[in-house]
């Protein structure tokens, strides 16, 4: 029984050690600013098309589904409100993080995994560089910076997607839709909508780097690490969103 538990406990411990080391490096020199900007470009600009597409269709589908339900109560005019709350609180942050996890956690795991199996990580240590400082911290900083920004874009595009449906298919006026969408949002929604991607960013980047750095077993091992990184990062996003939602729900309740 104890042997069965030993491995997962060790994995969690190593993940938190990596988290601690990466966080500590944020305040320690040297800082690899070039690497941070390169990663921001890869993660942020690179993920933009898929995030926009996902955001747009999420908002549009939400509007279609909710309008059907709201019509039973004669409240189709409130479609904007439902779409904006769902997108800003939950769907925008979660779906953007899932997209970035699918695209970048896997990318980080495969890139670092390839470096690991070809001894480039060892070479880096032998040549005077801390791989966590050079590879993990820049990816973590970059993800924490761009994921909230991507989420803001996804939120806006999502609400816009809902508007397209509301305007063309539900015959709502722009004022009707946008004022309802705007009025529905409170500071609590905006706060959780921005805090969530910031927390997800740690999961997305660190899980990718963790699985990359522990890769063994050649190219097959790289494939395995990539798959594990996406699965674990996605599951962590769902866990985290549940707990964060619970906290914010508690805070919002008077």
């Amino acid at each position: 029984m104890l042997d069965f538990l030993k491995r997962p406990v060790l994995e969690v411990q190593q993940f938190y050690l990596l988290f601690g080391a990466a966080l500590k490096n944020v305040f320690r020199r040297p800082h690899y600013a070039d690497d941070i900007f390169i990663q921001m470009d890869i993660i942020g600009v690179g993920s933009l098309p898929i995030v926009i597409l996902t955001g747009f269709f999420t908002g549009a589908v939400m509007a279609l589904q909710m309008a059907r339900a709201l019509s039973q109560y004669g409240q189709v005019g409130r479609t904007g409100m439902v779409v904006s709350i769902a997108v800003v609180r939950e769907l925008g942050p979660v779906l953007t993080a899932l997209m970035v996890a699918g695209r970048n956690s896997s990318g980080m795991a495969s890139e670092l995994g390839s470096m690991k199996v070809t001894e480039q990580i060892d070479a880096m240590r032998a040549l005077g560089t801390d791989p966590i400082q050079k590879l993990v911290t820049p990816r973590m900083i970059a993800t924490c910076t761009v994921l909230p920004l991507l989420t803001i874009i996804a939120d806006f595009v999502g609400i816009f997607g809902g508007f397209i449906i509301a305007y063309y298919l539900l015959n709502l006026t722009p004022t009707e839709y946008w004022s309802s969408a705007w009025r529905a949002l409170e500071w609590n929604d905006v706060a959780q909508g921005l805090l969530k991607p910031f927390v997800f960013a740690f999961a997305v980047s660190l899980v990718g780097c963790y699985y990359g750095l522990r890769t063994t077993g050649g190219t097959q091992g790289v494939g395995r690490s990539t798959t594990q990184a996406v699965v674990v990062a996605s599951v962590m996003i769902f866990f985290l969103t549940f707990f964060l939602t619970k906290i914010f729900t508690k805070l919002a309740t008077p």
Partner: peptide, 14 residues
């Protein structure tokens, strides 16, 4: 390590 040179098996170039 700065006083040791190491050639890795496959070169391990970046």
């Amino acid at each position: 390590r700065s006083r040791i040179g190491m050639l890795f098996q496959e070169g391990a170039l970046f």
